[in-house]
Design a protein around this nucleic acid. Sequence first.
DNA 1: GTAAACCTGGCA
DNA 2: TGCCAGGTTTAC
Length: 272
Amino acid sequence: MPELPEVETVRRSLEPRITGHRIEAVDVRRRDLRWPIVDEFEERLRGRSIRALERRAKYLLIRLDDDATWVVHFGMSGTLLFHESRRERFDKHDHVVVDLAAGGQLVFNDPRRFGSMSIHEGDDAQLFEGVGPEPLDEVGFNGEYLFAHGKRTSRVLKDVLMDQRVVAGLGNIYVNEALFLAGLRPRRALRRLTRDDCERLAQSVRTIISEAIEHRGSSISDFLDGVGRMGGYQWRRRVYGREGESCAACGSTIKVIVVGQRSSFYCPTCQR
DNA sequence: GTAAACCTGGCA
DNA sequence: TGCCAGGTTTAC
């Protein structure tokens, strides 16, 4: 589910509701997520106040008043929902329940358990070691960066953009959409692109990610923000999940191929 | 590099 | 029943 725009949407929805609040109780109902929740998790959170909410790549970073960070990754199916009043009955996939002193409650739900949660001490450097630049950072991520990277790899565009070490936060939906906007096929080799191609591709990534954040992410099957609202970008998809439909730009039939084990949707006419 | 693995639910 | 899914790690 969540790529960068969805995580950012969760961050924005939760920020005004939980910033400054103190954590009163923590109930871990299931510890075997993608990485097991450590035994000390509850005691590290209990009594702390939430100082700020940030995001890096696809990680939600909940800053605590002791300078530790509560790190959340949503995997494919995770949600973190804020409830104004506490609940007592839980779904079988509600794995972590955090009660706030003011009366609210945060519930982490994740049917597939590809998500994870941990407490990180100190600064973020080691946490994000090897993670690529944010796509909206024009200094770290731009056409020249992609062009230079192309000199070091024979990989195809789809693989490169999906690689979190190259650029952080993109996933299958938005890589497909960015490649459509750039007019480039998923199987094109990065090393074969011109500087102009790379510039257009970097710009397309930024455009798609910005639009997706504006529209509060994509709810294709089950994404919800921090208060249970669906996103709106699913209505604006141009290729992802549209196999067999006609391209809005040219009318050709959208095709799907598998690249790097993931479905890649593209318009055979608009993308070359 | 490429594939298989993790896990559950929904749909053909 | 089998295949597919917004992700990431691990193992040939």
